[in-house]
Write a protein that binds this DNA or RNA. Structure first.
Length: 279
DNA sequence: ATGTCAGAGTTCCTCTGA
């Protein structure tokens, strides 16, 4: 299985290049974030013509997540248990949930397409919403893997966190003043490792960014950030055979400000090697 | 220079979010 994640920054603005990419790169499962449309505005037909099933979820011009898959998606969910909401500048137990998470099972893998809240600025209500949201996701992950330690679980998407200083090449993002690099955000990211997940791309691609702001020639200057990740449980991580960050997708006409991150998975597992050969 | 985008409403500009 070839699994990809991409913050597309509006599916309608660039559906051509997204479907072209999925077909050209033989993507089996494409998790998308920031589709920026309502569910019924999603260009389902364009994906279906190319041979994909799609589940999409959005209810305003902001946020929105989707998963396209060669195989049918089952157990589609539009929130993880305990997912906090946000409304009118404040978070809290009564605030409505946003369209930031979609879970589905495909090919034996539980995949979550995630658009972690941006945080806006340190101390902003949105920043605490971000931390709460990550905490609830970590709790869900911990409980899922406690109940089923061999679950093939993939949390993929735009985490809006640069976990190390090497992941931040944008001089406008300053430790102590900016979101994405603050210790609480980095601790929230590291907590997924405690929960039993690992970044399955970094061992194969130690450096490089996945996002470059549109402003101020950030891409030509390579002042980007690594904020898009594929985190996997041990059952998923054991199956990884390759990874690619498609930096070229930041080039050309109408690019998203993020590029796709892809992993190849051999989910047949070691049992294949034990199977007797029959001639 | 917060120098770019995308979407929607207050529409052929201004606002919000990123």
């Amino acid at each position: 299985m070839r699994l990809a994640t991409w913050n597309v920054n509006s599916i309608r603005a660039r559906v051509d290049r997204i479907v072209d990419f999925a077909v050209r790169e033989h993507i089996d499962v494409l998790a998308m974030q920031e589709i920026k449309c309502k569910t019924d505005q999603f260009p389902f037909d364009r994906f279906e013509e190319a041979g994909f099933h799609v589940a999409a979820y959005g209810f305003s011009q902001w946020n929105g997540v989707a998963i396209a898959s060669r195989e049918p998606l089952t157990n589609v969910r539009t929130a993880f248990p305990g997912m906090p909401g946000f409304e009118k500048g404040h978070n809290g137990p009564d605030a409505p949930q946003e369209a930031r998470a979609m879970g589905a099972t495909v090919g034996g893998v539980e995949v979550w397409s995630l658009y972690v809240p941006n945080g806006r600025s340190l101390g902003d209500p949105h920043y605490y919403y971000k931390l709460d949201w990550l905490s609830a996701l970590q709790q869900y992950t911990t409980e899922s893997l406690a109940a089923n330690p061999d679950l093939a679980l993939a949390l993929v998407g735009d985490f809006n966190i640069a976990p190390t200083d090497a992941d931040n090449g944008d001089p406008a993002v300053v430790p102590g003043f900016s979101t994405h690099v603050s210790p609480p955000e980095r601790e929230a990211f590291a907590a997924f490792e405690t929960a039993g997940l690992q970044d399955v791309v970094r061992p194969l691609i130690p450096t490089g960014y996945t996002y470059w702001d549109y402003k101020r020639l950030k891409f030509p200057r390579n002042e980007g950030m690594r904020i898009d990740f594929i985190l996997g449980s041990h059952a998923l991580a054991d199956a990884v055979t390759g990874a690619t960050i498609h930096r070229d997708e930041r080039k050309g006409e109408l690019p998203s400000d993020h590029v796709p991150v892809v992993v190849d998975l051999d989910l047949e597992g070691p049992d294949d090697d034990d199977r007797p050969m029959i001639f």
